[in-house]
Amino acid sequence: MDLPKNHFKAALKSGKHQLGFWNSIGGNTVPEILAACGYDWVMVDTEHSPVEVVDILPALQAIAGYPDVSAVVRPAINDPVLIKRILDMGAQTLLIPYVQSAEEAKAAVSAMRYPPAGIRGVAGVTRASRFGKATDYVKRASEELCLLVQVETKTALDRLEEIASVDGVDGVFIGPADLSASLGYPGEPNHPDVIRQIEGAYKRLADIGVPSGVLTLNEDFARRSMELGTAFTAIGVDLAVVVDGVTALRDRFS
């Protein structure tokens, strides 16, 4: 049996834009609904949500029912134990938060790879290896794994090229919310100075041939980001959609 194909990674390599949505509500129903809605990728978030590691597996299984939709998982922290567990569950694309330096990016790469190239622990019967049925999984796993690192502070932005150039980093995600706070505009991700820095980051990444991505609830900025060449753009968060929809319905009866 061959390795499961990572369509997200393949699209990054081909230059095809991918539209995504953020999943922060635990369980398998919401990620399945999001996958059914036709997005290219669904982000299962465990950093800014009550979703725990054990909740990732049913989410991955739910999304897997839609072969044209890729699951991306964000661990709570750049930690080799968390990364190992999430990879063993069959996640193929990870978004690592709060990467501040090339050294931290290299640590994430090492956690994604088996020895001798890295430090990922080897387990024989896991969902990732199709329960031991995937041919040469340990030797070939890195072929279908994709690492995205999150740049979300001024410090990281100043080191953007060195972080993005680390061998094994497949793409860089710019985090507007944390970046706005780091730049001195807390709670203002749409501040002109923040937008200027993000747009500059897109160009800097394009100049060195590294795909860029972003999450923004500002539809105008999402379209602008895509025009500027983001490779993976998330345009919504499940909780935000619920809050907005329920509030709007209530307001129509006020």
Rank of each mutant, 00 (worst) to 15 (best):
A117E: 15
P186L: 05
G168T: 02
P67Y: 01
P31H: 04
L147D: 06
A59V: 07
L94S: 01
M43K: 13
S142K: 13
L239F: 06
N28Q: 15
A234K: 12
V138Q: 09
I174D: 02
D2Y: 14
G175P: 00
A111I: 00
V166Q: 08
L82C: 08
E161G: 01
E152Q: 06
G209T: 11
V172W: 00
S212V: 05
P97Q: 06
P116K: 05
K5I: 15
P211M: 01
L95E: 05
A206L: 07
K154N: 14
T46N: 13
A248R: 12
R85L: 02
Y202M: 09
D167C: 11
T126Y: 03
G121H: 01
T216C: 11
T216H: 07
A240T: 03
R223E: 12
V99T: 14
V73G: 07
G213R: 09
A59D: 09
D178I: 09
L95Q: 11
N23G: 13
L60G: 10
F232I: 07
G213Y: 12
V30G: 01
F232H: 10
I96H: 05
E161W: 04
H17I: 15
A177C: 13
I235P: 08
I195P: 01
D55Y: 03
V53I: 15
A35Q: 01
A201D: 04
N190R: 13
A35I: 01
E161Q: 08
A201K: 00
D178E: 13
L239M: 10
G65F: 05
R113M: 04
I174P: 05
G27D: 03
I208E: 08
L147Y: 06
I235Y: 12
T93M: 08
E188C: 14
G175K: 02
V99R: 10
